[in-house]
Simulated scan of single mutants.
Amino acid sequence: MSNTETKLPDSARRVADLLAELGHDKPVVMLPETGKTSAEAAAGLGCSVAEIAKSIVFRRLADDAAVMVVASGINRVDESKVAARVGPLGRADAKFVKTRIGYAIGGVCPIGHVDKTVMLIDEDLMKLPSVWAAAGHPHAVFNLTPQQLQAMTGAPVADVALR
């Protein structure tokens, strides 16, 4: 375990431990500045905004399930496209996200959720060699390939971008 990993906040440590259990070989990285937005995270990492895999959470109206879309940082999510696949959606407030997903907004990780989450992965992420995802804390991220993201989440790839 690297010196940086020993100093991770609890929520990021939980993600690092989960990644280790999954056999993932990349560490959780702490950004000096917040990575709450895709642009902030990209600036801190020196990568393009497209390479940020942002997690957007909705509330499915039919059963109150959490619906997560992992989208490219440059894309806006088209709620109607997501709803066409999973059913009508509502807004997920910070309390809903923290309770159902297990992470605070700004650090929502695509893995390690408290409750079963309905998930979709933006097809545009699949065109990239690697992406950066939040690791449970606004300053924590980890690198992986889009294929690893799909394998870890089991989420289908879909056209979710507003065009």
Rank of each mutant, 00 (worst) to 15 (best):
residue 52 I to G: 13
residue 109 C to Y: 11
residue 123 E to D: 12
residue 83 A to Y: 00
residue 92 A to D: 00
residue 9 P to N: 13
residue 143 N to C: 08
residue 67 V to G: 00
residue 63 D to S: 02
residue 163 R to H: 15
residue 39 A to R: 13
residue 94 A to M: 14
residue 128 L to P: 03
residue 84 A to Y: 02
residue 60 R to Q: 07
residue 12 A to N: 03
residue 149 L to W: 12
residue 114 V to T: 06
residue 62 A to P: 01
residue 126 M to F: 05
residue 40 E to S: 08
residue 122 D to E: 10
residue 28 V to W: 05
residue 24 H to Q: 07
residue 148 Q to K: 06
residue 70 V to R: 09
residue 77 V to W: 00
residue 56 I to A: 09
residue 133 A to H: 14
residue 147 Q to T: 11
residue 73 G to Q: 12
residue 33 E to K: 15
residue 158 A to I: 02
residue 104 A to L: 13
residue 104 A to R: 14
residue 36 K to H: 04
residue 85 R to F: 11
residue 108 V to L: 07
residue 119 M to H: 10
residue 42 A to N: 07
residue 29 V to N: 09
residue 113 H to R: 10
residue 29 V to C: 01
residue 113 H to C: 06
residue 158 A to W: 15
residue 4 T to C: 06
residue 67 V to M: 00
residue 141 V to M: 15
residue 52 I to E: 13
residue 142 F to R: 10
residue 61 L to F: 01
residue 120 L to E: 09
residue 92 A to M: 08
residue 91 R to I: 14
residue 77 V to Q: 11
residue 16 A to H: 02
residue 25 D to M: 12
residue 90 G to Q: 02
residue 101 I to F: 01
residue 121 I to L: 06
residue 135 A to V: 12
residue 48 S to Q: 13
residue 117 T to V: 12
residue 72 S to K: 08
residue 19 L to R: 03
residue 32 P to K: 14
residue 23 G to V: 02
residue 83 A to N: 04
residue 82 V to T: 02
residue 94 A to R: 07
residue 140 A to D: 04
residue 57 V to S: 11
residue 83 A to G: 10
residue 27 P to C: 07
residue 74 I to C: 14
residue 109 C to T: 03
residue 159 D to L: 11
residue 147 Q to S: 14
residue 39 A to N: 05
residue 105 I to V: 15
residue 56 I to L: 15
residue 135 A to H: 07
residue 89 L to P: 04
residue 61 L to G: 03
residue 94 A to N: 11
residue 144 L to I: 00
residue 132 W to P: 00
residue 17 D to W: 04
residue 152 M to L: 11
residue 47 C to T: 12
residue 126 M to T: 03
residue 148 Q to F: 09
residue 160 V to D: 10
residue 59 R to H: 07
residue 56 I to G: 06
residue 85 R to T: 04
residue 55 S to D: 04
residue 58 F to R: 13
residue 52 I to D: 06
residue 112 G to P: 01
residue 107 G to E: 14
residue 97 V to H: 14
residue 63 D to N: 10
residue 25 D to S: 07
residue 119 M to Q: 14
residue 154 G to I: 05
residue 117 T to Q: 05
residue 163 R to Q: 08
residue 154 G to K: 10
residue 40 E to W: 03
residue 95 K to R: 09
residue 151 A to R: 09
residue 61 L to I: 14
residue 112 G to D: 02
residue 37 T to S: 15
residue 8 L to W: 00
residue 87 G to W: 00
residue 146 P to K: 14
residue 120 L to N: 02
residue 107 G to W: 11
residue 143 N to F: 09
residue 74 I to L: 13
residue 44 G to Y: 01
residue 61 L to Y: 06
residue 97 V to W: 10
residue 89 L to Q: 00
residue 146 P to I: 06
residue 71 A to F: 09
residue 48 S to V: 08
residue 38 S to R: 06
residue 149 L to P: 00
residue 43 A to W: 03
residue 21 E to L: 10
residue 145 T to A: 03
residue 27 P to Y: 06
residue 8 L to C: 15
residue 38 S to G: 14
residue 72 S to L: 09
residue 41 A to I: 05
residue 154 G to V: 04
